[in-house]
């Protein structure tokens, strides 16, 4: 067991998989000589060389398209998009090609492809660089969407993603690279598509993922002081969505708050709440609350930005409403 940061966990996963399988290579903007814009691939270029840590032009459609092509012919590319905001430029290749080719050609094509990217606000990058559009990507059958909240999950899920024959969008959070956590030594693959209880409790179910875990954990610590035991379910994967742990928890607590960093409208919270109502209607003791980002493009000003983003206090207030 070692205590490492999220950045180190992701870096280790990539390094170990590249050492294990020569078909695995990285491509993206500034992944090589620069060492990665979030320093995840620092040192990779010197060790693996430019063919396996391939710097690309600033051309996201080209990057994802080329990664798809390389995957089709049997390689296992890990394409990096510097931020998820740039994924919109590659939207066609993510949702219209990667998510479709296996099905549309009746299983003849496989796409062992990982698109690593960075989402989330809170770094004063302004409206175009601070989004959390995870739900948009989770909308498409054929694509898998993973967004871990702990170093252990990040490492285990990324290793599984690289070994998977399906196209996977792997979303890291821009403000969580320094988050530390215990990671088991040696091979520890975590299956994609499994939710996890990150904190047990009996009074209320908080369903969340990624950055939402960080603020929900803080909220749960505060709530515990008032004797409220919140159970926190980490979705970890948005598609395929594993609702069983959520239903199990809800049937015990009968109350739920869903926390996400993206906008509330048509978001993750709406999906989770609907599914709970559909499957657990007889267990509902209070309306399910959604905590999410205010419905504005994120501003640059730090005070305004933080006001728009969901905070632990918002989670606490929502929990108090459902109790």
């Amino acid at each position: 067991m070692s205590r490492i940061t999220m950045r180190e966990a992701i870096s280790q996963a990539l390094w170990e998989e590249m050492e294990r399988d020569p078909a695995v290579f990285i491509m993206g903007e500034e992944v090589g000589v620069w060492g990665g814009s979030y320093a995840v691939t620092k040192g990779f270029y010197d060790h693996f060389g430019g063919d396996r840590v391939r710097d690309t032009p600033i051309a996201e459609a080209g990057i994802v398209g080329a990664a798809i092509g390389a995957a089709l012919v049997g390689q296992r590319p890990v394409a990096e998009l510097m931020t998820i905001n740039f994924a919109f430029v590659a939207m066609d290749h993510i949702v219209n090609e990667a998510a479709k080719l296996h099905y549309m050609f009746a299983g003849q094509f496989k796409l062992p492809l990982v698109i690593r990217t960075v989402g989330g606000g809170g770094r004063q990058l302004g409206a175009t660089h601070s989004q959390t559009p995870d739900a948009i990507f989770a909308h498409f059958p054929g694509l898998k969407v993973v967004a871990p909240s702990t170093p252990e999950d990040a490492k285990g899920l990324l290793k599984s993603a690289i070994r998977s024959d399906d196209p996977i969008l792997f979303i890291e959070h821009a403000t969580m690279y320094q988050v530390r956590g215990d990671v088991a030594d040696g091979e520890n693959l975590i299956p994609i598509g499994k939710s996890k209880i990150q904190r047990p409790g009996k009074d209320v179910t908080i369903v969340t993922y990624s950055k939402g875990i960080e603020i929900s954990m803080k909220a749960a610590d505060e709530l515990a002081k008032d004797g409220v035991e919140a159970e926190i379910v980490d979705l970890r994967t948005l598609r395929p969505l594993d609702m069983e742990p959520v239903f199990e928890s809800f049937k015990k607590t009968n109350r739920a708050v869903v926390v996400e960093e993206g906008w509330k409208s048509f978001g993750v919270g709406s999906e989770i709440a609907s599914r709970i109502y559909e499957e657990c209607f007889d267990y509902v003791d209070a309306p399910i609350k959604r905590v999410a980002q205010d419905e504005v493009p994120l501003p640059y000003n730090r005070t305004l930005e933080q006001a728009a983003l969901p905070q632990a206090d918002d989670v606490i207030a929502a929990v108090k409403e459902v109790l």
């Binding site: 080209g62 798809i68 092509g69 012919v73």
Partner: peptide
């Protein structure tokens, strides 16, 4: 859209 994919097939090969 298949042009970048072709680039990638050639890259993979």
């Amino acid at each position: 859209a298949h042009l970048p994919i072709a680039t990638g097939m050639a890259l993979g090969d």
